[in-house]
Write a protein that binds this DNA or RNA. Structure first.
Lengths: 235, 235
DNA sequence: CAGCTTGAGTGAACAGCGTTAACTGTTAAC
DNA sequence: GTTAACAGTTAACGCTGTTCACTCAAGCTG
């Protein structure tokens, strides 16, 4: 006999599991409130005991997916014990790409559309937003570690311009005291990685490269070298 | 008295105009078949005289938006008569960014989600796909012009790797005979530009840069220099 | 143990969605 | 002048998210 709280938590998990199943099999459009209820043998109104709306269910699913991706990437760093931080970043970047290619529907849900309401006042307390921050922190912290381990050369101030330097200097405390130029390079790494994976997963690279794997590897070498990491040549 | 064909063409245009209006005011979710009909004072089934399905209406809207964006970018090149091809590329990149920032809903519809069915056999004949190709050709051709005008140095083969070079060599005819290394750099330019604009428009850069304008400028200088273009410093 | 309360779940209903079928006029063509 | 094609309507189907009133069992309290 399980307590009521446990039973509630169990069904809540079942709901999200069913939603995940529908997402994988039929894309984000397939994960409807009624479809989830059908999957569990429940009537649609029953789900309102667990989520105030369909949108809330989706948001919870998004938060869960972010956390799943975050822990998967962190495990990738810890299980394979690689002392070299550059190699670790390489693993991380490839881990994100592989996750996106293996779970395109989930990836699209997380990164494919615009962030819902970026200027709502309660946005920062949203579970989904906090999960997204935890995800971003994985990369941010590793890059900061790399910087403090072996400071990489960053572009001269003439390239960045005064205004950008001012903006980046404000972010210095969130980047463990890195100078603006180094933050710029970190941001460049993230921006390029993100753009590359999005384009490949969403199929917007097919028209020129049917298999973007080699291109991704080359780009990874390029942005890795920009961070002072010595990457092995391709062949 | 207008002929029947003209009347039909006129209503067809009105339908797409109404759909566009709904898209702008309420996002892609707001452009429903019934909503469009309501906007025109028609009953929903009437629209089936013009589009076989709701999805077809959206596809037509997408194709129109691609063409609108393409002509806007081409006009940007011709009206402001700039002889320097590097400056022209700069105008083009900024034009795309400004269009995305000014029309976020339209931009999301074009670039935000995965390409619907990339492996359908009739996909290449789709109006939307052809419009997307025409859009991509604007950048592709300008970069090829730049190459033939002032060939830029490209990375050594060791960075790219044999497989990638083989893939890029196959694309050489579509890039006006450019060598694989130059195609690689062109692709890098496009990939970085695309990723940057997507992230900014979709608000995924807000957490670190409230205003990404200066960052965009710096990135544009960086990738411009990679193409051998002499960009003016920031300050 | 009795009584009351909480909460999970149901059934019926509402408004809105995309879509289809049968039907009505109007308009162009032979 | 008859006929055929066409734009548009009405009614309906099955689907969606959501609400309200209700039932029934579990858990806590006197």
């Amino acid at each position: 006999m399980e307590s009521r709280d446990r039973r509630r938590a169990a069904t809540l998990a079942e709901i999200k599991a069913a939603a995940r199943r529908l997402l994988v099999s039929g894309g984000s459009a397939a994960v409807g409130l009624r479809a989830v209820a059908r999957e569990l043998g429940l009537t649609p109104p029953a789900l309102y005991r667990y989520f105030p709306s369909h949108e809330a269910l989706i948001s919870a699913l998004i938060a869960d997916l972010y956390d799943e991706l975050t822990t998967a990437l962190m495990q990738l760093q810890t299980t394979e014990d690689v002392p070299d931080l550059g190699e670790r970043l390489y693993l991380l970047a490839n881990g994100l790409r592989n996750w996106g290619l293996a779970h395109p529907a989930e990836f699209a849900l997380l990164f494919g559309t615009a962030v819902p309401a970026p200027d709502a006042d309660d946005h920062d307390e949203t579970p989904g937003h906090q999960a997204a921050m935890r995800f971003g922190a994985v990369f941010k912290e590793l890059v900061a570690q790399i910087w403090h381990w072996k400071p990489f050369p960053y572009p001269p101030d003439e390239l960045l311009g005064r205004e950008l330097i001012a903006q980046l200097t404000q972010e210095s405390e969130h980047f463990q005291g890195m100078p603006p130029g180094a933050i710029y390079l970190s941001l460049t790494y993230w921006t390029r990685l993100y753009g590359l994976i999005c384009m490949e997963v969403f199929g917007q690279l097919h028209w020129v490269l049917p298999d973007a794997g080699a291109y991704f590897e080359a780009q990874l070498r390029e942005i890795g070298e920009a961070l002072g990491l010595d990457c092995p040549p391709a062949d």
